[in-house]
Every structure is written in C-alpha cells, then in structure tokens.
Amino acid sequence: MRSPLPRRLGWYLLFGTGAALMLFPFLWSVASSFEPAGSVLDKPRLIPRHPSLDGYRTFLSALPFWRLLANSMGLALCSTVLQLVTSSMAAYAFARLEFPGRRVIFGIYLATMMMPLQVLVVPLFVEMKQFDLVDTYAAVLAPTIASAFGVFLLRQAIVAVPRELDEAAVMDGAGHLRIFATVILPLIRPALATFAVFAFMASWNSFLWPLVIIRSPEFMTLPLGLSNLHGQYTTEWNVVMAGTVLSVLPIILLYLAAQKYVVQSTALTGLK
C-alpha cells in the first residue's frame, strides 16, 4: 500500500530536515576548520570568505597526528584481534566442553560484565603502577584482552551450531582445537564480525582509561591528543576543528565501508 504523494513528500521533508540537523554539526566543523587564523572571533560562515589551511597547518605541527592515528588504529586492531581469539576460545569451552564447575565459572564471567571500567580505573592504575606499565601500549591494551561480553555473545552462536557437525569431525579423528578452528569458527563468522565491529569501536573511542594511563604524547590515542590540543588552543577553534575533522575521517570512512555490519552489530548486541 503506497501512501498518497503529499504525505510522502511531508515524510521526506520531515526526516530529511532531521537528517540535515544530524549532519550539520559535522559540516560546521569542516567549515570552521578552513577559517584563517585569528578570525575566530568573527562569525564563521558555512563557506569561509577567506578559506585557509592555517588550522590544519597548526594542528599538524602541534600534534604528531600520524603517530596518534597509528596508535589508535594499532591499539584498536590489537584489542579486537585479542578479544576475538580469547572470547571465541572460551565460548567454545562453555558451549562444547564438559568440565566440573562449568556453570559456576560461566556465572563468574557474566558477573564481570557488571563491573564497569569506570569503577575500576583507580585500582587498575595502581596495578599498572606495580607492574611498572604506566605509560605503555601494554597498559592501554591490558583491560581489553578479554571480554566476558564477547564470550557470552559467541557462546550463543556456537550453541546454535548443530552438534552433528562436530561429531562428524570427531569421527575423522579431529581434536578439539581442530574442530574449533576448522568447523566452528567458519560457521560463526557473522557473530565474529558483529563482535569485531563492537570491539573495534569501543577501543577506537575509549577515552578515560588512556587518559589515566598515558602520559607521553607519542603513546597517546587520537581522542586523548584532541582533548589535550583543546587545552592548549582554547580559543583557536579553527585548529581544534581541523583536529576533529582529521580524526573523525578514518572512522567515518570505515563506517561507510562497513555500514551494514556496524548498524547490525548495534541492533544485535544492543551496545555501541
């Protein structure tokens, strides 16, 4: 059933305007980033009257941008791969292996999901200090090596795989590691992709933990670098906006490339 034309036009007008409002802050930051230095107290316009690259130049000289980008990207990739490996293995154990205490241990895993990192920041910092890991990549990665949530999500996926498939492999003399790698993993690829998107975004956007544990500029992630930059260039908004534009670009490109998976991941996991 198609609705009448005026109603359809109204729909486009309403939700198109809404979408424009969602996009506008991004456009505005792009526009402001091209304002010349020292013009910030004048009212910026959507099309700058004297477009200039001052903001970008200052930004790139104030921050080791490429280094920060590589840090953010590298840490996000490492943490995603680590979580995929550790979570899928544990998920296999809880779904397929029989061992005493399985339920209790799974219960403890789930309980750790209740403990937000925000609450653990102080003791984690103290622990890293004892391990002498403050201001290292390892410390940033440490709390993201394993994820109880990932175990939970992937276990659901493995439970849904028919057991006959593993049994056929057992007949062929395959051990658990082989069944896991050659039978189970290929079959739960959609769940792995969903979780990978989630883990990557969580690491890419994380702020509080890197803020607490990182001191040196060369180990900083993009959000941390930007926040610091804002502290130095409080009134030079063209510089700050150039920074936001450059640091938001990679994730937007990634999002456009994998949009279906990203939105699906949110709908399925309920997390962002």
Binding site: W28, N205, L226
Partner: peptide, 18 residues
Amino acid sequence: YFLPVVTSWVVVALVWKW
C-alpha cells in the same frame, strides 16, 4: 542518523562546544 554514534565522545564534545 547513526553517524554520530560511531564518532568518539571527544569529537562530539568539541564540535558542540564550538
């Protein structure tokens, strides 16, 4: 509509602060 969700809080906060 989903675009801001993938953007980091720091970026969102700075853009809105401006």
